[in-house]
Amino acid sequence: MLTDGDTLIMLARLAAAVCLVLTPLSALSQESFPNRPISVVVPFPPGGMADLSARPLSVSMEQVLKQPVVVVNKAGASGAVGIQNVANSKPDGYTIMVSLVSFSTIPEVDEMFGRKPAYSRDQFTPIALLAADPPVLAVGAGTPWKSVKELVEDAKKRPGEIVYSHSGLYGPSHLPMEMFLHAAGVRMRQVPAVGGGPAMTLVLGGNAAMWSSPPAMALQHVQSQKIRVLASWGAKRHAAFPDAPTLKELGYDVEFYVWSGVFAPKGVAEPTVTILRDAVRKAVAFPEFKTSMAKVQTPVMYLDGPEFKQFLEKDARMLSTAIKRIGRIEDKK
């Protein structure tokens, strides 16, 4: 006859047996990550910089991970929709995201306007940095300035008269410009456009004097002599514009990068994160990846998870200061 004690011991043995069986199984299931397709969410419409970085990456990652890696575009609100979507997704490693520098700026701007932030940066685990391109200062062919020095002198003489355009408030062409203007101590008027194309059109048509342009977009117009590039926002001179000094060289302590990076939602298990980091590291080394990126004129700059995290934090601090300094546009009246 079984006593309670016996039953208990039997149950304990059963439990132990189950655990023993399951543990290797669970380790197995983690080691077998990935065992189904991974989706890479790009929070922008097809054809943009994030998209053009994510697609070659997913092709190469597919070869590393031996599972389909599919790019899913979930555009909206300058990226906020897609990013929020990934923040709330299941942290099992099957949903990752390629995002741009706006990742760090959107929550700040939300806060400044008193809106509930769409997401917060700590809802994400940084996996890797893919590319970091500094923008260049593109001035229209009809403008008289041949160097940043001339520009700054002119701006000092007529504050608030020169007009610059950008692709969106607090975006990757507005912030670098404002940072430069603050460092140079001059004031200019801004005309917002919606997107890079329209911003460039404003400068090409003489409706705005200059803007902070992605190098790829500027290159073709420099070749057709419709714009001139006076400087770049990087730490080193841009390979495509060797004659353009960096703003740092000119004495302004300003650096800005339009970067793209890979993120996973927070809560993904450590081993999975490691697998993802490894996969990205290997993918980035593939020659096909490098060629694809070169074709769209985006130089690869790879940083692994922990270094990327540091880069992110430093970058975010700088962006936050700039955003707060710009403040809300109508508050300046």
């Binding site: 054809g47 697609r55 073709q220």
Partner: peptide, 25 residues
């Protein structure tokens, strides 16, 4: 060579991946 709207932006991207930049050149 400028994207004047979402449609042309996609067309330009389609060409850029092959390393060609639309435009006068």
């Amino acid at each position: 060579g400028i994207p004047t709207g979402p449609v042309t932006a996609v067309m330009i991207a389609a060409v850029m991946v092959h390393g060609i930049s639309p435009g006068p050149t």
